[in-house]
Design a protein around this nucleic acid. Structure first.
Lengths: 198, 198, 198, 198
DNA sequence: CATGAATGAGAATTCATTCAT
DNA sequence: TATGAATGAATTCTCATTCAT
């Protein structure tokens, strides 16, 4: 019962922080605003998070952790194309099936120096499989190698994020969209063209 | 040197602001830091820009204006593929041939609510030709139509920005990169697959 | 003593602000000076009053409210002369029996555009009974009607304030003064001369 | 011709300063605002007036000098009542026949510490005849002596200023007003009542 | 654990004044 | 003389953080 309440408070704070950061921007959000939105006192926030930075980083890593379950498939085990498609689909559907604040919050934070190096290492870890599979694909001559695998990975992540940006700021339910097609589109872009006769 | 010659003060401020924002991030830059870096007094900044917000927005729109020359080619006049490729190439080479601060500054600002709706309308204007050509390509059955043209445009912009992010933060001259191949990669992704037998 | 007990902070700020404004003048008082005098931090002031302007206006209206108890006697109920004299006496004795800052602060503010229209409406409300009784007196032919009642009211207020200005800046206890005689003096001025033979 | 221009500039500055101070208040007027209103550069102001304080004080004393012609009638020479009435009438008509900024500017400044002691001595000098005549009247048993002459003088000045405040902020040409009646009213107030039988 | 008033260093902004043109 | 961009100290205001209740 008590723990319930505590967990509830922490979640209310996280919720409020995400909402308000998405609305007003990282730079112009104060702890007092978060407290007001969360309907708690300032003290409650500082009970759960020692500093503002840690609050932001904590939310950031919470989301990354949700996104990257402990056990990540090893790219080596699977067919390159399958791994690539499932990685991308997972990335998209993770955000699509969650409150819009999840993606928009991450999108705000990603370029900001408030995110500690520590938190950024988490990013790297989640980014790594993508780089790996692209490199593997290049070695297998399945994927274009005009650019280093890292560059392709940035390109792919940019494309996915661009789509999600559209989804969460422009999409209006008018019709069904299929993330699957999107990941296929990216794959079509980066894969090597079939040789004639193949 | 007590007094500054008139000329160039505004540009020195813009320069300094871009540099320092790229270094420390939008949120953690103070007007005093900008003044120090620009070697002006604080008042000089406020002489040229009424508020911090307007300074940022002004730089933002200055760059967008540079990027979008008054006369934009009309997508209707050209072959779809050519227009798409030249649009994307122009976008990439604009940033690649300019100081890295240009892109990194824009990238910082783009997701931030500090950019006013007014400035964002400029974005829309520069974005529009891309949406148009994608829509035209869809009507011509040249481009996949699983997603609305706007979504594809976000996707394309995301991909280009992802690449530039890599270019300006990871690229180390090790070897020659060709933006042309990148835009071709995107085109390969979004174009309709050739029918067998064609 | 690092932290202040809650109670009384607002009053200490008001107190300090009045004192220091009376000493140095509205224009040359800074929030830092007020904070120092009140022995609070600057933040405490802004916790209670959103801006410097609102602090001033708040003090102004606080005093006006003290001065005008909710229930004001209706001029219609009483003999004109009695009402006039009691109104004036009340005005004088209110300030005479309070710290000199009360009057001197009001006197500073009254002509200053820092006092918002909103606060000025309070003035009007407290001013109204005076205008009313003068108008009534004019209708009864008890009071000279060379000038509109409003003009007379400004005149009367000016006279009372002039006296108070003397009282708080020049009076030195040398001898007893009687505000009652003053209000009588004003009355003698504005009343109609007795007809010969009456 | 040249001198003309210079005199013109100085007057434009004085004019502009008075206007804007009356509008916005002494505290919130900057030299830049004055320059803009006067349609001059900042330098022009500093050619004519070494500091902001001196500008204000200069205007203040300019008006006082206009008001108090070098030769002031000596109260001793005239009948007390005549001197009192002509003094008061002169005070009122001086302001009434001049732009409203004259009075309203003086009213703003009078309580402010920006007015130097030097300038204030001018006030005293113009105030002195009033105190003198009231004292003389008291010695002659023509004027009530419940209060010291200085107090009466403050009272009288307050009354006159109160009237002018009405005149310049409320009066709307509806009908003719007669300052003469006003000064008579004050006289009626402060003079000793006639003994019955006299 | 929770509250929110209080702290005070630091950020944004203003403005009297100077001076190259 | 006139101009107005530039200076930078002073001022207003903000906000992460603490702590008495």
């Amino acid at each position: 019962m008590k723990k319930m309440k505590r967990a509830g408070t922490e979640w209310k704070i996280v919720q409020a922080a995400m909402e308000i950061i998405v609305e007003k921007g990282l730079a112009s959000v104060s702890m007092a605003m978060i407290a007001r939105r969360a309907r708690t006192g300032m003290g409650a926030i500082y009970h759960h998070f020692p500093t503002k930075e840690e609050l932001i980083n904590n939310i950031y890593t919470k989301i990354r952790d949700l996104q990257n379950p402990v056990k990540v498939n090893d790219p080596v085990d699977q067919k390159t194309e399958d791994f690539f498609l499932s990685f991308s689909n997972h990335y998209l559907s993770f955000f699509i099936h969650r409150p819009r604040e999840f993606f928009l919050f991450m999108d705000q934070c990603e370029q900001s120096p408030i995110i500690s190096d520590n938190s950024k290492q988490l990013d790297e870890r989640s980014f790594w499989p993508l780089v790996e599979v692209l490199a593997k694909g290049q070695r297998e001559k399945l994927i274009k190698n005009d650019l280093p695998a890292t560059a392709l990975a940035y390109f792919v992540k940019g494309a996915l994020d661009g789509f999600l940006r559209w989804f969460f700021t422009r999409y209006k339910d008018e019709y069904v969209i299929s993330p699957l097609e999107l990941t296929r589109t990216i794959w079509d872009g980066i894969k090597c063209p079939l040789e004639i006769g193949q």
